[in-house]
Every structure is written in C-alpha cells, then in structure tokens.
C-alpha cells in the first residue's frame, strides 16, 4: 500500500471509533452515585476546588455569582463557537420550567476560564447538576436529551 492509503485507513478507523464513542456518551450524565468532592470521593479533588469539609459551592470565589435552585441547579458551560449550546439551552430551560425547584444557569466558558479549569470542563456544552449547596453531583458533556436530564434529577432525590 502507498503512504496515502495507510494514512486513509488510519483516519477512517479513528473516525469510526471516535464517532461511535461520541454518539454513545454525548449527553450522558455521569457521577451521580459518587458525589465529587464529598468526604468519600476526595481522590477526585483537584487543586483549586474548595476543600470538601466546607461543603462550599463549586462556584465559590469563582466570580460566577448565581442563585442556586432549591432542589438542583443545571449549570451549563457554553462558548461562542458551539453549535449544540443553543439546543442544550433550550432543553435545560424546558426542564427548569417543568421541574419545581430546579434552575438553569448558563456560563460563558471563555470568560470564566479559572472555574472552567477548576471544574475540569473540557468541551462545550458541559452541563453540571449541582445540589442545593452548589456541590456537583453529576455532569454531562454534549447535548443531553430531555429525558436524560429528568432521569439524572430523579436520581438526585
């Protein structure tokens, strides 16, 4: 085979693998069982994340000053060059209207890079579900379906 054929083969295999992975994980909420930053899960802690004992909001001291929902907060990170962010905003907005005590907050990732790094947000949209104290309970990268958000909130209570 020529070099070009080898490169093409490698590209196609990578793309198929990546596409399957992406379609399978997009919008999927993870981490509901083990609350990040709780006393059991300190191994997941990163420098910059407030210590677990204080049970502080993940947004404490980040400059993002938002009211938290009574039951949960859907914290969405968006950026300017992000096609699925708009659709995510619509889905989360609907859920916030549907479920009492749940609020939706959208944060521009580019303007809050410190908190983006502290929370290890790698792509937009990323949605974090925060408990009433502002602790992260679950997160999903990519566009979530409405049912996925509702199911994740269900597991919270």
């Amino acid at each position: 085979m020529t070099t070009g054929q080898w490169v093409l083969l490698a590209v196609v295999l990578f793309v198929v693998g990546f596409a399957v992975y992406r379609v399978a994980t997009d919008g999927h909420f993870r981490g509901t069982r083990r609350v990040r930053g709780s006393s059991e899960g300190t191994s997941a802690g990163t420098p910059g994340v407030p210590p677990a004992e204080t049970a502080a909001s993940v947004l404490a001291g980040s400059g993002v000053d938002v009211p938290l929902g009574e039951r949960a907060t859907l914290l969405q990170f968006s950026s300017a060059f992000c096609a699925p962010c708009r659709a995510t905003r619509r889905v989360l907005g609907e859920v916030a209207e549907l479920v009492p005590g749940v609020t939706h907050v959208e944060v521009d990732a580019e303007h809050h890079l410190q908190v983006v790094r502290d929370l290890r947000v790698l792509r937009t949209p990323t949605t974090l579900i925060l408990d009433p104290h502002g602790q992260e309970v679950s997160r999903a990268a990519g566009l979530p379906k409405r049912d996925q958000v509702l199911a994740a909130l269900e597991r919270l209570s």
């Binding site: 060059f81 580019e110 790698l122």
Partner: peptide, 29 residues
Amino acid sequence: AVALALVAALLNASIGLCLGCEVYLLLHR
C-alpha cells in the same frame, strides 16, 4: 496535515461534530 483536516471533515459529515469548535475552548484553556 491532510489527515487531520480529513478527520475533522469526516466527523462533521457523519455526526455533525464541529471539531474545530471543541479545540477552540481547549486552546483557550
């Protein structure tokens, strides 16, 4: 370089993923 451009184009054509947009935030970080 061609391989990278082709990866991005194929992902966009197949699942509508905008790879450049995702890299944008990573570069910013």
